[in-house]
Design a protein around this nucleic acid. Structure first.
Lengths: 198, 198
DNA sequence: TTCTAGTATATAACACTGTTATACATCAAA
DNA sequence: TTTGATGTATAACAGTGTTATATACTAGAA
């Protein structure tokens, strides 16, 4: 295995084990059995490592939402896609926190990393938008996608920061799905009302 | 002015100017014209400084939502309270990011800080819950409050991390209010349906 | 007034962080 | 064999939070 792969593997391991605070340059190089210098020759320092993990995180999100076929989608399919997002937020907390700047206050995603983020959002736009009538504009599709994103992200983020209640049976993922469900209905009513009246 | 106040003022200034990354122990003490040691005698180190700012942040949120009188509230009043929350997210970004762990990955709020958070959430429960019928249970009130919190937080958080669109006229606060509006109607219908059928 | 106790402040150091200048080793091509 | 380039290691620099030690100052008692 080449040094670049060794470093990336070591970084992923440490990140999964201890989150962003466990990701020091020296810890990575020690785990990889190499010197610190490789992180600066193979990557652009710690920024490069974080970029790689950031991209990995958004790829997880994009793949988790990728359960809807091309063309029109049913509401159940859209909600399934949201559930995929919520599962990533639950199961890959470290990656998710990195995406929203909770792992390293100084980290700013590179252009490539932002491209990965936009790619995931495009997926969301297509999925959420595919529930709207064919007459809907791109702006309307982006609108509903942004609404869905804000809602599911809100629940994921709060679930990470607050022990939600004494009742451990409180299912925040189901709550998020229910809110999205209501919102999808509202959006469809709103956007369909005009054509219906013709 | 005593040393404790000097330190807290200096910390607030630096935090507002440059966010969490500008908050180093040495920078605070330099700004305050004192030695670093005061931060450890008057506060519990950097943790203590962050606690003070964390509490300040949640007090801002609680006060911003405090526009609803005791007893039953109109929907407009609830939405006004949400707008207060959204304004804090917009105007006090540094405090808001600290609350959600985006300023210092290692920071864990103390008991006192968590009490301030719970106090703000209690306010939200009372406000959002006051829109429900009197027959609603405490669990239902906490439920709708958590929904509202997740929604408004979702928009605030995303507005901090993504340049939302090419269209700068995209008003994410109005979007959040609209989603909360829809959700309040849905919740009221849901909880009122049973008594209606009696 | 002088001595003492206790508190507040300052200095310097420790262990850590990301980063980089320098030096060394390895290997392919001339 | 020599040259050049590439990859790696060591050590250092500037920064971080923290703390042990030493100093100053102030209040109260003899």
């Amino acid at each position: 295995m080449d040094s670049r792969s060794k470093i990336l593997n070591a970084a992923s391991q440490l990140f999964l084990e201890g989150g962003g605070s466990a990701l020091s340059v020296r810890a990575i190089s020690k785990r990889a059995g190499l010197s610190t210098i490789g992180i600066y020759s193979h990557f652009q320092g710690k920024q490069g490592i974080l970029d790689a993990l950031y991209i990995e995180g958004f790829n997880l999100v994009r793949e988790a939402m990728d359960v809807v076929p091309e063309g029109r989608a049913t509401k159940a399919q859209v909600l399934q896609s949201c559930l995929g997002y919520l599962n990533v937020g639950e199961q890959h907390e470290a990656h998710y926190r990195l995406i929203f700047g909770e792992s390293d206050a100084g980290y700013q995603p590179s252009e490539e990393a932002i491209a990965a983020r936009n790619s995931a959002f495009s997926k969301l736009v297509r999925v959420a938008g595919s529930y709207l009538p064919d007459s809907s504009s791109p702006a309307e599709r982006r609108q509903i996608a942004l609404d869905v994103w804000a809602i599911v992200h809100g629940y994921v983020s709060i679930s990470h920061h607050v022990t939600l209640s004494n009742d451990s049976d409180l299912d925040w993922k189901a709550m998020a799905i229910r809110v999205v469900d209501v919102q999808l209905d509202a959006a469809r009513e709103c956007f369909e009302s005009v054509p219906d009246k013709i």
